[in-house]
Simulated scan of single mutants.
Amino acid sequence: MQEDIKSIFKPHLVPKEVYKGGKNIPPSHKKIYKLSSNENPLGASPKAVAAMKAALDKIDIYPDQTDIRLREALVQDFDGQLSADQFLCGNSGSEVIDILLRAFINEGDEVIFSNPCFLPYSVFSRWYGANQVDIPLLAPNYHLDMEGILNAITEKTKIIFLTSPNNPTGTYIPKSVMDEFMARVPKNIVVVFDEVYRHFADAEDYVTALPYVLAGHNVVGLNSFSKTYGLAGQRIGYGYTTATIANYVRLIHKPFLLPLTSIEAAIGALNDTEFIAETVKTVLEGRTFIAKAFDELGIKYWPSQANFFIIDPPLPEMEFTDKMMEQGIMVRPVSQFGAPGKVRITIGDKEANEALIKALQQVMP
C-alpha cells in the first residue's frame, strides 16, 4: 500500500533535505541569551505592538482581502519613489521567495545561487523541480563570483539569487560589482536581491536593489520585518520590483493572504522611526564591540555588514555550540548553509554581548 502511493510522489521532492530553522530557547533555570537566529536585540517595535493590540477585537472577521494598505504604507516608507503596484507582500520574506519561484519556475528550469547562503534558495527551488546551480562565494573572503555566475547562465536560467548583506557570512556586494553584473545579465532573467539586513549595512559602497528597479531592471528587492522591526513572530515580508513583474506575480496571490495582526504590526513598525534608529545604533555599536573582542581573543571572523558574525570557532562547531550553551549562549552552526565548520553569532544588546564575550573566554582552549 505504501509503495503504491509513493509511485505518484514527485521524484524531485523525495528524499531531499528540508530547511531547519534555528532552535528556540529551551526551558532552563538560568538566563539564556539567544544569539542564534538574528532577531532584533531590542525586541519588537512598540508602535507595532500597540497596533496589534488595537486590532485584537477584530480577529473574528477576515482581514484585508489584499495587501494594498501595507503596500501604500511601503510607498511612504520609500519616499514615494515606488508605486503601490510595485510591491509584493507575503507571510515572511521566505514566502515571497516561494511565490517568486512558483511564478517563474517550471520543472527543469535553472536557479543560480551562491553558497554559503540562505538555505531556502535551494530548498524551495527544489520543490518546483528546478535544476540548482551553485556558484560558491570566493574564498577566503566570501566575495561574489560574478564571472562564475555569468558564465553559468544558460537558456534555462530563470532566477538568480544574490544576497547583500549575505546570510550567514555578513559580506556584501559593492555597488561597482552590482553595476557591472546588472549591465551584463540577460534581460529575460529575474534577479532576486535579498536585502533583508540592509538597515545594518554602513559601507560607503553598499547598494540596495532600489536603483536597479528604478532603472527598469528585472530585479526584486527582498525584505523582511523580522530583523530591524522585531516582528519575527508575525512572519511578514515584502519585495519590490517593476510593476510588470509585480502585477504578474500577484496573479497567484491568495486572497486574505496576510493576517490582520501582521498587517497592522507592519504598518505600525514602518512608522516607528525611533525604534528603527535605536535598533541600528545598538547593532552597529555591538558589532564594533564584538569585533574588538574577537581580535583580542584571537578568534577568526569575517567583517560583517549585518547583525551577526560568522566565525571559525576555536573548537569543532558542534562541540563549540554545546559548550557555549552550557555558558548560557545560543549560537548557530551553519554547515547546513554551505559553510562547514563555521558558526554564526547574532549581535545582541549590551548585556548579551558582554555575556557572549565572557562565555567565549570560558570555552577557549
Rank of each mutant, 00 (worst) to 15 (best):
E296I: 05
I5V: 14
K300I: 11
M146C: 12
S125K: 00
E147C: 01
D60E: 12
I357A: 07
Y128S: 02
K158Q: 01
S83E: 14
A306T: 00
V249G: 04
P255M: 02
V191Q: 10
Y212H: 02
R332T: 14
A183T: 14
S304H: 07
E278C: 11
M52I: 14
A48Y: 04
V331Q: 00
L356H: 07
P140N: 04
V331S: 00
H29D: 15
E317L: 00
K58G: 07
P46S: 03
Y301V: 10
P340I: 12
L258W: 02
Y212M: 05
F78L: 08
K281D: 15
H217Q: 10
M182E: 09
A50Y: 02
L144C: 03
A291Q: 05
P136G: 08
P136L: 03
T208R: 11
F9T: 04
Q132S: 07
V219W: 00
P186H: 09
G221V: 02
G298K: 04
E351K: 15
F124D: 14
G348D: 00
I276M: 13
K47Q: 14
G93L: 02
Q76P: 01
M318S: 13
S83Q: 13
D312Q: 12
P303Y: 06
A246G: 02
C117E: 12
D4G: 09
N166I: 05
K34C: 12
N167L: 10
G108A: 10
P26W: 01
P165E: 06
D57K: 13
G230C: 06
P333W: 10
E180R: 13
P174A: 02
T279S: 14
A73N: 06
R235H: 13
M52A: 11
Q362Y: 07
G22A: 13
E274W: 08
D67A: 15
E351N: 09
L260P: 03
S92A: 05
F294K: 04
L270H: 01
E107D: 10
N188G: 12
V343N: 01
E110G: 02
L119C: 12
P313E: 03
K6C: 08
T241F: 03
E274L: 11
N188H: 14
E296V: 10
K350W: 09
D202I: 15
I329L: 05
D64P: 15
M330N: 05
L119W: 05
R287M: 08
P11E: 13
H143L: 11
R332K: 15
L100Y: 11
Y248C: 06
P186W: 09
D194N: 14
G93D: 08
Y212D: 01
L270Q: 01
L214K: 15
I357G: 07
A152R: 00
S83G: 13
P26E: 00
R71A: 04
D179K: 03
A277R: 12
T171L: 06
I263E: 12
A203M: 06
L297T: 09
L360G: 08
I25N: 03
A54M: 09
Q234K: 14
Q86T: 08
L214M: 10
A215H: 08
T321Q: 15
Q81F: 08
A152E: 00
D85T: 11
I347L: 08
E354F: 06
E354G: 06
P168M: 10
L284I: 15
M146T: 14
N307V: 00
V334H: 00
D205T: 13
A44Y: 11
T66K: 09
L297M: 10
E39A: 15
K292Y: 07
G216A: 04
L42M: 01
M182W: 08
